[in-house]
């Protein structure tokens, strides 16, 4: 059985809330539950009462460029889901919260720091046989004065990643070992990987994103276990300048969240271009 969030020794334990907390506070007007999933059918099949859906492709992406929505789009999204800068947004979702942390990360690009993740995500809520509904809630439209998106603090771009690699600074590739080694692209069954070359960015350490969660209930592992994984085994330090990446930046947002909030790393950026960009770039170095 998992320990309580407060007992796990996190640097910022208050960024997580338990399913118990959500059950107790979900109806408060200052709290907005947001479900973000990979599977597009899950929310419609049943969600926590009061939760609204924020979909990565429909709601967070620019519909033309490969980029996220701009300040105007974010303000419109916040208005639609009835969120003000004072609203506490609690994210949860499938796949042990990887899409929830992705949405959380995008919200941080716009400085919505009043945000938390429900530990264990959707699977834990279901496993506890808690209430679900198919009713889609509606909230009064709000006015949200969104700032310009800040891509400097927690987002990395390809030229920065190249310089980072050449400077031998730490990077964490959170994909599977087969993707990291490049083996996967050589298998005929995986033509949709979206990259012309397989392998990893030189210098990156391979720590699959799911290493950070307990397999039994999807909750985050305690801080001492996380430190063993990232620090004792991979040599990272809390003061390091770290870049995380995966295939499109979704799984790596989960590790970004772990390093930045649960372990308190001061400088972690997520490279959302990830392998679908790096593996298609001309003449960048690749290791296998």
């Amino acid at each position: 059985m998992s320990t309580t969030i407060e007992e796990r020794g996190y640097a910022n334990a208050d960024v997580l809330v338990s399913t118990d907390w959500v059950a107790a506070h979900k109806d408060e007007p200052g709290v907005r539950l947001v479900e973000s999933n990979e599977d597009p059918l899950l929310y419609a099949s049943g969600h926590i009462p009061g939760a609204i859906q924020v979909d990565w492709t429909h709601d967070l992406n620019d519909q033309l460029r490969r980029d996220y929505l701009n300040a105007e789009g974010f303000a419109a999204l916040m208005a639609r889901i009835g969120v003000t800068p004072e609203t506490l947004v609690v994210f949860y979702g499938d796949k042990n919260n990887w899409w929830a942390t992705y949405a959380f990360w995008v919200f941080q690009l716009f400085g919505h720091t009043n945000a938390k993740i429900m530990d264990g995500g959707r699977a834990k809520w279901l496993a506890e046989r808690r209430e679900l509904t198919r009713e889609i809630p509606e909230y009064p439209e709000t006015a949200y004065p969104a700032p310009e998106r800040d891509d400097t603090a927690i987002r990395a771009f390809r030229d920065q990643v190249l310089a980072h690699s050449q400077a031998n600074k730490p990077m964490v590739d959170v994909r599977s070992p087969a993707e990291f080694s490049g083996e996967k692209l050589h298998m005929p069954d995986y033509p949709q990987e979206g990259a012309l070359r397989g392998g990893h960015i030189p210098g990156a350490k391979n720590v699959p994103w799911a290493s950070a969660v307990n397999t039994d209930d999807g909750t985050f592992k305690p801080a001492d276990e996380l430190r063993r994984i990232y620090e004792q085994e991979q040599g990272l330090n809390t003061d390091d300048d770290v870049i995380t990446y995966c295939r499109i930046g979704e799984r790596s947002s989960h590790t970004w969240f772990v390093l930045k909030y649960l372990l308190g790393y001061s400088n972690v950026r997520n490279y959302d271009g990830s392998w679908t960009e790096w593996g298609n770039l001309v003449n960048v170095p690749i290791e296998r």
């Binding site: 990979e38 599977d39 597009p40 990565w56 949709q192 990987e193 295939r247 499109i248």
Partner: peptide
Amino acid sequence: FGKEISMGKGAGLMG
């Protein structure tokens, strides 16, 4: 499922 389905989900369904 729509063209905006995630790459991972799409790959699995195509599998």
